[in-house]
Design a binder for these strands. Sequence first.
DNA 1: ATGGCTACTCCTAGTAGA
Length: 255
Amino acid sequence: MKIATWNVNSIRARLPRVLAWLERAKPDVACIQETKVEDEAFPRAEILAAGYRAAIFGQKTYNGVALLSREEPADVVRGLPGDGPEDQKRLIAATFGGVRIVNVYVPNGESTDSDKFSFKLRWLEKLRDFLATGCNVSKPLVLCGDFNIAPEDRDVHDPEKWRDQVLCHPKERAALAEICNVGLKDAQRLLSQEGKLYTWWDYRGGAFPRGFGLRIDLHLVSRPLEPKVEAVEIDVTERKGAQPSDHAPVILRLR
DNA sequence: ATGGCTACTCCTAGTAGA
């Protein structure tokens, strides 16, 4: 089973690349973030023509998540418990082949002294509570998406430059650790202890060709899936060429 | 050199992303 996560930075701007990537990478489930489109305008027909169902949870301009899948999603949940219609669209979950998949777009946080950073920390706390009480991590579960957190210094091209900055601050790293403490492990780190495994590169300043990246797109797996983790592949070719997203897709292979 | 990229919107300027 191949479970991908990809922040596409607008599903409409990225549609040609997304369709070509589905054809090439053939994920069973693709967890998409930053669709940036209301549900009525989601390009459902094009995705369907490519052989994928789409469970969507979007809003205008900002945020928005989707699950693209070969099989029909079961038990779809949209948003965190207690969310109202005005809340940001950042979570969608469903079950595929006995695996619960929770797809998240964690708030960016802007800067560590901003209200958006407090919002990010609160959102992560709510996510932890949802995993602890609204999910069953004793069963196969994958929490994946754009976490907007580089878990450790080895996930950052220049740790000293990024020290205590947003995406790397100890408070958000601690919030991520609390989520893992519910019973989840970073699938990439079950397989490799190497650095330079980046998933996002700034559009500015030639960050991608210069290798200035961060690993902020993650798959966290529950204990029953740990022995089934076969590979975690960062699809860097999708960061190349014309009109790329600033994130590369990351594909988890389960035995 | 006061920018740096990209995508969005009540669209040619401002906001947000990371």
